[in-house]
C-alpha cells in the first residue's frame, strides 16, 4: 500500500506541474475510463521539427491517473512526436515506479491512451490495442 501511494504519486497528485489547457494546440484529445468515469484531456503543442514543446492535461480522476498524467506530460516535452507514439505501458509504469493490478492499470494508462489517440489522430484505435 505504502508502495502504491509512493511520495512521488501523492506529490504529483497534490501539486501537479502540468495541469491546464492549451489553446491553440496542435493535438488535443479526451477520453474516459468507462469503469470509473475518470476523464482526461490532453493538449499538446509541437514545433516545426516535430518536437513537443508544451503539454497540459485536464479532467478528473484518482491519484494514480492524475499522477500518471502529470508525469507523462513532463516526459513527453522535448520528445519527437514519433517517439511519443512509441511509448509503452512499461514506460508509464517506470515513470510511476509501481506495480499495478488489472483495475488500477487502467487508471495509470488512461493518460497515455489519450496522448496516443491525440497524436495518431482519431480512427487509428488499432495502434492503442496494447493499452487495453
Amino acid at each position: 500500500m505504502d508502495d502504491l501511494y509512493r511520495e512521488i504519486i501523492i506529490e504529483h497528485y497534490k501539486n501537479p506541474g502540468f495541469r491546464g489547457e492549451l489553446d491553440p494546440n496542435d493535438y488535443t484529445y479526451e477520453d474516459e475510463n468507462p469503469v470509473c468515469g475518470d476523464h482526461i484531456r490532453v493538449d499538446i503543442r509541437v514545433n516545426d521539427s516535430g518536437i513537443v514543446t508544451e503539454a497540459k492535461y485536464s479532467g478528473h480522476g484518482c491519484a494514480i491517473s492524475q499522477a500518471s498524467a502529470d508525469l507523462l506530460m513532463e516526459a513527453i516535452i522535448g520528445k519527437k512526436v514519433e517517439d511519443v507514439k512509441k511509448l509503452t505501458k512499461q514506460d508509464v509504469l517506470d515513470l510511476l515506479g509501481i506495480e499495478l493490478g488489472a483495475v488500477r492499470l487502467k487508471c495509470a494508462l488512461l493518460p497515455l491512451k489519450v496522448v496516443k489517440a491525440g497524436v495518431y489522430g482519431v480512427g487509428k484505435e488499432s495502434e492503442l490495442s496494447d493499452l487495453d
Binding site: 500500500m1 484518482c62 491519484a63
Partner: peptide, 13 residues
C-alpha cells in the same frame, strides 16, 4: 479532494 478509487484501494489494504 480524495478520489474514491484511492479511498477503496487504501481500505482494501
Amino acid at each position: 479532494g480524495i478520489h474514491p478509487h484511492d479511498v477503496a484501494q487504501i481500505l482494501d489494504s
